[in-house]
């Protein structure tokens, strides 16, 4: 079964992928599945969200339904149909 997940992207990710959109992923889905679908939505975004091992880059801020998801099991955090996943790339310059 496929589910639809709402995505909200900020800053550079908004420019690359769009501000608000939906991705369709197979259930049961995880944060990693959703992020991978987002990255695959734009060839110019390749390498922006996932590292070479296919994991969500640790620096990316991820929220599911407006709650921050952190920790070593973040990639496996479950995402249900209709959930909102938000992504933000922290910046470093001063």
């Amino acid at each position: 079964m496929m589910i639809s997940v709402r995505v909200r992207a900020f800053a550079r990710y908004r420019e690359l992928f769009g501000e608000r959109f939906e991705v369709t992923v197979p259930a049961p889905a995880t944060v990693r599945d959703v992020v991978m679908a987002v990255e695959e939505s734009n060839p110019r975004g390749m390498g922006e969200l996932l590292d070479s091992g296919g994991r969500v880059k640790p620096s990316v801020i991820v929220l599911v339904n407006r709650e921050r998801v952190t920790g070593s099991h973040r990639d496996d955090h479950p995402v249900a149909g209709g959930d909102e996943v938000a992504i933000y790339p922290p910046v470093a310059g001063g």
Binding site: E15, L63, E67, R68, Y88
Partner: peptide
């Protein structure tokens, strides 16, 4: 909260931050 400025479209948003007990 992380106040986030997107100058390309003139938006100011807030992203919640939570203290991590670990």
């Amino acid at each position: 909260v992380l106040v986030v400025w997107d100058g390309r479209c003139g938006r100011l948003d807030q992203i919640p931050l939570v203290r991590d007990p670990a």
